[in-house]
Design a binder for these strands. Sequence first.
DNA 1: CCATTATCGATGAATTTCATTCAAATTTAT
DNA 2: ATAAATTTGAATGAAATTCATCGATAATGG
Lengths: 165, 165
Amino acid sequence: MKFIDNGKVMTEYFHLDDLDRKILTILQKDASLGANTLAERVNASASSCWRRIRALEQAGVLGPHVRLVDPVALGRTLDVFCHVRMKSQGPRARASFQRAMEAEPTILAAYSVSGEWDYLLHLIVEDMQDYERILMGHVLDHESVAATSSNFVLRRVKHTTALPV
Amino acid sequence: MKFIDNGKVMTEYFHLDDLDRKILTILQKDASLGANTLAERVNASASSCWRRIRALEQAGVLGPHVRLVDPVALGRTLDVFCHVRMKSQGPRARASFQRAMEAEPTILAAYSVSGEWDYLLHLIVEDMQDYERILMGHVLDHESVAATSSNFVLRRVKHTTALPV
DNA sequence: CCATTATCGATGAATTTCATTCAAATTTAT
DNA sequence: ATAAATTTGAATGAAATTCATCGATAATGG
C-alpha cells in the first residue's frame, strides 16, 4: 500500500489490531492449531479468526507455513558465522558470489552487511571437517573472495523465527 | 539414541532414508500440504507418508509447525547484527545477560560465539531510531556489557529455515 | 535358502477443519 | 443522533485429517 505525499513515497503498512496481533503471535509459534482452538485462545469466534488469517495472508503479512527441523537430531551440531571480504565488489562478482551462496544448502543465510566485512554467512554443518570442506570448496574457492573469518557458536542462547507484533 | 562404546558416549542419529528426506525437504518449505498431496509428490502412499511423519516427530527430528511473518510488510525494515563484548564472563553475568536477551522480542537470535566478541545478536527492528532505543536500553545499559559493534544488513541475499537433509 | 520381521498401500470410520451464509452487533461518517 | 458500512459470531455441510487394521510385499539374517 503506497501513496505519494509531497513528492515522497510514503508506505502505509497493514494495520494490525489487537486480535491480529494475538493471532500472529500464536501462529508464529504454533501453526498446527485449527481455527477453533485458535479462536478460544484469542477470545474470538472461529469465523473471525479465519477471516483475519485470510486477510493477513492476502496482505502478505502472514507468510508460509513451514516445519522446523532440529539440526541436532540430524547430527548437524556445528553452527558457524562466517564473515567474507571480497576482492572486488562489481555487479558481476556480487551476482556470481550470491549464486554460489544460494547453491550451498548448509548456508542458511547470507547477508550483505555494512562494516569491515562484505558478507555475513550463517551455516549449520555436521562437524569441523564438514565445515572445512564447505569453506574451502564453496567460499574461499570463489574467485571474488579475498578473505574470511569464522566464528563458531558455543551456545545458542536464543533462537526464534517469531517477530514481535 | 545413545550407547556406550569404549567408555565413550556415542550418539546414533535417526536414520533417514530417501522417502524421509523427500518428506522433510517438502515440509520444511511448505507444511500446508495434506498427506494426500504430499504422497503424490514423493511417490508414496498417503499412509506411508503419514507414518513417516509421525516417526520423524517422535524422534524429535520434525519439530514445530510455524508460520513465518514478513517483517517488511509490518514496517520492520532494519536487520542488524550486533556483536557484544562482556566486562566479565562469570556465570551470574552470563545468566543475567541471557535473560535480558530472552526478554527483548526484537532480538530474534543470540549466540555465544568464539572469537574476539562474546555474543552475536540478530535483531529486526523498525528503523534506526528503534534500534538506538533497544541498543541503549537493553544491551549497552546492561551492567556486564563492555562494548558493542553493530553491522547493518544492506541486503538479505539468502534466508531460509530449511536445513539440508 | 527359507523364515522372520518390518514396511507398504489400501480401506474405512470417527473426528476436525474449512469456508460460507445470515442475522445481530459494532463501528464510522454525516 | 441516525443511517450506512463493516465486522462479528453461531450454524452448517462438504471436504480433509487422523489413526487403526488388514493382506501383500520387501528386507533381513541365520
